[in-house]
Write a protein that binds this DNA or RNA. Structure first.
Length: 416
RNA sequence: GUGAGUGUAGCUCAAUGGUAGAGUAUCGGAUUGUGGAUCCGAACGCUGCGGGUUCAAAUCCCGUCACUCACCCCA
């Protein structure tokens, strides 16, 4: 007798929230096509190896958050926890770098992570994101960041904060990590057990720890910013300059680290003060080595991913225009065929039309019209049929007019 | 994986251990070709699930599941 419910961390979306989703999706398509991004749709599951190699086998996402399963042929497959690795795979597999110009893609769709659900965090969640390939200009970094912030601004999302950092490259990061490890080992006693483990595995993450003692200790650690190679330092400088003349205010956060291993150079994150603990609206950065690591050409890339549920949470007060619904009422069941034909004409004209097939009396039909929030109700009865006309009542003003069917078109033009 | 809070009608919520209720939504009615208001009526519940204490449990205890929030991690 136990009712089957949606699995933990998943949910149903329907009216009225679904209208906001449609609005957001339309906004994404419209906005990013202005930068010549084209949509790309990749499979929802991939070979597990794509993610372990792409995202990094040491990351939390790969180690404990993947929905991995075997198919009937014994292949290990995984529901995508993010989409960048898939897009890179698709670019390589289809040789898109030889046929598509510019190499810019955007995507939107569901991602899956086995996380414990909480505010703004689901096991199946929607992300949209963009990826730019084969352009390592720092101005591109700035444009990508600008577009992310500008997009959110266009949605009237306020109270957002942009943080940026440079996480270095294979030239400078390994050397810095050793310096950081040395510093951390020297002050090991000032770190929590978790952070002590991070020293060898992923010392950058120590900067993420929210425990006051760790944060206090980490303040004394050397920062990557002071150990960047000249190339990374120059790149980051131009990114910051470009952001300034693009009028994008940002916060330099030398401790900003990304959770996925593939990032190089520029990393950024937009957070919101209006969300709960899961306050990241979007995050991204450069990943100049991922394509090569996944077997493609040596090609630079940059992108970001945004959490759509978290954006939707900000659209709470968004009011969308309501469609002008037309209700077709008939006084007697024998006029139902006429009503159906009228509805067809109206729909062909583009009006949203509803009619009740159950043949109840007019009073009932008007009540129904009220419930579907109809703007107009058309009435067909003996009188109208005989004179080849229709009565139209404006539900708000209660004005009712009777017009000839041959004048219907001009009435529609005036009112729709 | 860890912790806290909450589970009662479709929804929002009541009910000193003593017959489970209200508001709202739904359906019907207040007769004839016209809605929103008002009035009358109907239907709606294994009080998340399982055990325990008790003459008696929505209420107390244990377990379990679900939801919510936080840790962790991230978008």
């Amino acid at each position: 007798m136990n009712e089957i419910k949606a699995p933990k961390g998943t949910r149903d979306i329907f009216s009225p929230e679904i209208q906001k989703w449609q609005f957001l999706e339309n906004s994404i398509h419209a906005y990013y096509q202005k930068f010549l991004y084209r949509e790309i749709r990749t499979p929802i599951f991939e070979h597990s190896e794509l993610f372990s190699r792409g995202i990094g086998s040491e990351t939390d996402v790969v180690q404990k958050e993947m929905y991995t399963f075997s198919d009937k042929a014994g292949r290990s497959l995984t529901l995508r926890p993010e989409n960048t690795a898939s897009v890179v795979r698709a670019v390589i597999e289809n040789n898109l770098f030889e046929s598509v110009t510019p190499l810019r893609f955007y995507y939107l769709g569901p991602m899956f992570r086995y996380d414990k659900p909480q505010k703004g965090r689901y096991r199946q969640f929607q992300q949209f994101g963009i990826e730019v390939f084969a352009d390592e200009s720092p101005q591109v970094d700035a444009e990508v960041i600008f577009s992310a912030v500008d997009f959110l601004k266009n949605l009237k999302i306020a109270d957002i904060k942009l943080e940026i950092n440079s996480v270095g490259c294979p030239q400078c990061r390994p050397g810095y990590l050793e310096i950081l490890r040395k510093a951390a080992r020297a002050e090991q006693s000032g770190l929590c057990a978790d952070c002590q483990r991070k020293i060898s595995a992923n010392p950058l993450r120590i900067f993420d720890c929210k425990l006051p003692e760790c944060a206090e200790t980490a303040k004394r650690f050397p920062l990557l910013g002071n150990h960047l190679c000249s190339e990374c330092r120059d790149h980051f400088k131009i990114v910051r300059e470009a952001l300034s003349w693009m009028n994008v205010p940002f916060l330099l956060n030398p401790r900003l680290v990304r959770g996925l291993d593939y990032y190089t150079k520029t990393a950024f994150e937009v957070t919101s003060g209006q969300l709960g603990a899961q306050n990241a609206l979007l995050g991204g950065g450069r990943y100049n080595n991922l394509i090569k690591e996944l077997g493609g050409p040596d090609m630079a890339a940059i992108g970001f991913a945004a959490g759509m549920e978290r954006i939707i949470l900000h659209l709470r007060h968004l009011t969308l225009p309501r469609p002008k619904i037309m209700f077709v009422a008939y006084q007697d069941p024998k006029w139902l065929p006429n009503a159906i034909q009228l509805a067809q004409v109206l729909r062909a004209h583009g009006c949203p039309v509803y009619l009740d097939y159950q043949g109840k009396n007019l009073k009932k039909q008007f009540k129904k019209a009220d419930k579907v929030a109809a703007a107009f109700t058309m009435v067909l009865a003996e009188d109208e049929i005989k004179s080849e006309a229709v009565s139209i009542k404006d539900m708000a003003s209660q004005d009712q007019i009777k017009i000839s069917l041959k004048d219907l078109n001009s009435w529609l033009k005036k009112n729709y």
